[in-house]
Design a binder for these strands. Structure first.
Lengths: 346, 346
DNA sequence: GTGAAAGCGCTAACAG
DNA sequence: CTGTTAGCGCTTTCAC
């Protein structure tokens, strides 16, 4: 970008550069850019041409600083590489983009990355709101957003302290167990996956327990795929298989876990579905492939994203009016998609 | 946040609020926050306490506006829901976060979302640099970033006009064809997937053609899974299967396409690998499941992300020194992972 | 060690 | 219709 003194401008053109080149004032430029006030046709053209010539783009930093609000939202996700969260994040990004918001996405890569730090970062960026697909439960996070009056919405995360849009996980677990019980299974294990968010994990566990009780079935074991996670009350897969009374069905907390479980079962020579049945949760697209054929509980991904973003936008709009409106919880209905990894109890 | 006049403060606390509460000046607060100048122990403590009390977070907008540079990068991705890009994006976000940058992620959801618009948006946000995992080839994009001196790096995208870090796609295609040729296949089809980025698609097509020639094999058909994409020179799967001389092997441009292809083959009663072999590209984790067992060309995802981000940081550091340094291209070696979807030609 | 002052680029009254 | 002005919250010399 050449300047009148012949030197190259440092950095990008500013509104002043445009004003100078077109011989008008900053305000007029601002008016043609935003259409906030009527501008004479001839003036507008001159300004537009100057903008074109200089490759001018308004500086969002300056605009937002002045306006005291940004058109940016923060998105916190536990694992983008998990296809379920990949799809959900994509869908969320689409909705926010449509609403004119840029999305700063933060993945929680390890224990070193805490949601608390991510939220602090997002606050510094003055995001208009935050969508959480992962929440560790830290009260400081709640405190931080509350005092700053930054709306926060849990998507596929349930916490009574903020608005949430979730699948009815307990019900999802229940319909999975119903399906298995109808097939005659008596010993149904639960397989929590570490790829699942904590509150979600708990709700599905709860749903599994209740459904077993409802069907008057003994509670099956909680089987973990992760050797080092020696959580009490849990047993490893080998132990489960070697027991006197091994499970004939496994309900996994999500599809990636179900898929890894089936792989281990295949490896161990346990036939699915002849010997044991497996049902997953999420219904990621891979589950639908013939060779996979995973029976799964489908979550309405698109709705989750749409309602989560809608709620966030609502909160953003009302933040000055009623920042302390009570938290709302929306639970969407899941659907069982029976496929070929479940069959009659042997 | 209570103010001295008893009212609630609007919005977040500023550096001035902190200064007032601790009885010092803005500069001193700034100094304790950044350690940019020595501050007396007692003063520092007072300031720190005020910060704590007010829940003060520096406003990144104001800081960046003043500094004339942000700690934000833009990431443009074609399809986050594709597991390959999910993994790659996750890995990239991790690297940028480690380097202290926030990532604004833009997915190209449809033809209505152009990379050009996304780049314009990112420029307005004054991102320090852009990572492109999708590029439509629009010259305006190049022009836009060039004149604004915003570094841009293609990751898994190849274009001579900017720095790129890619897998050697032609070589990947070649080793896939080599594998098939060794198994005795003579008629090898190419299956482009619309989930693959254009330059990548072209490179793999090129590699396939060359390898066939090298093996002195006739060029097989280009088979499309997408009925409406009646690109000339392409045939539908049904047509391919019904031909006098059907392919005995298919090389798909990526794993999701390969997986969908196998599903269609299964549906049509064509056995894989007994009747035909299929090899994919990317080696997403699903490919490794026993029930899937997809032979695939592995891309070094972690390296792609690491080198891409490294290169971007380098460019950002040098942007004032040498903004016009020539574009560099790094090609990483792919590896063939043979599994069970490929076998000897019948 | 600490404070005062000058902007960064922009918007939004308010005059003219 | 168009220009002037006063900041948004922060960093960064430069005095004291």
């Amino acid at each position: 970008v050449a300047r009148s003194d012949g030197t190259e401008r440092q950095g990008a053109a500013t509104i002043i550069d445009v004003a100078r080149l077109s011989g008008v004032s900053k305000s007029t430029v601002s008016n043609v850019v935003h259409g906030s006030a009527p501008v004479a046709q001839r003036t507008r053209e001159k300004v537009l041409q100057a903008i074109e010539e200089l490759g001018y783009r308004p500086n969002a930093l300056a605009r937002d600083l002045k306006r005291r609000r940004t058109a940016t939202v923060g998105v916190v996700v536990g694992d983008l590489a998990n296809p379920f969260f990949g799809e959900l994040t994509k869908s969320i990004e689409q909705r926010t983009a449509e609403a004119g918001y840029a999305a700063i996405i933060c993945d929680i890569h390890s224990a070193a990355d805490t949601d608390r730090e991510k939220v602090a970062l997002l606050r510094e960026q003055r995001v208009a709101g935050i969508l959480m697909m992962y929440f560790g439960g830290d009260a400081m996070v709640i405190e931080e957003v509350r005092r700053a009056a930054v709306p926060i919405i849990g998507v596929s995360v349930l916490d009574s302290r903020f608005d949430c849009v979730v699948t009815d996980d307990a019900k999802g677990a229940a319909i999975a167990v119903d399906h298995l019980a109808e097939l005659g299974h008596q010993r149904i294990a639960y397989v929590p996956g570490d790829a699942t968010e904590a509150s979600t994990l708990a709700a599905r566990l709860q749903g599994w327990k209740r459904a077993l009780r409802r069907h008057k079935l003994r509670r099956g074991p909680i089987v973990t795929m992760n050797e080092h996670s020696a959580i009490k009350g849990t047993i490893g897969l080998e132990t489960a298989l070697a027991s006197d009374d091994p499970p004939t069905a496994y309900f996994a907390s999500n599809d990636t876990t179900a898929l890894r479980l089936i792989d281990r079962l295949d490896e161990a020579g346990v036939r699915v579905p002849q010997d044991v049945s497996v049902v997953g949760f999420d219904d990621i697209w891979i589950a639908g492939l013939r060779r996979v054929g995973l029976t799964s509980v489908r979550q309405p991904v698109g709705e989750l994203a749409a309602l989560g973003v809608e709620r966030l936008l609502l909160r953003i709009a009302q933040v000055d009016v009623d920042p302390d409106a009570p938290a709302t919880q929306q639970k969407l209905a899941p659907t069982l998609i029976p496929r070929t990894t479940t069959g009659p109890a042997g």
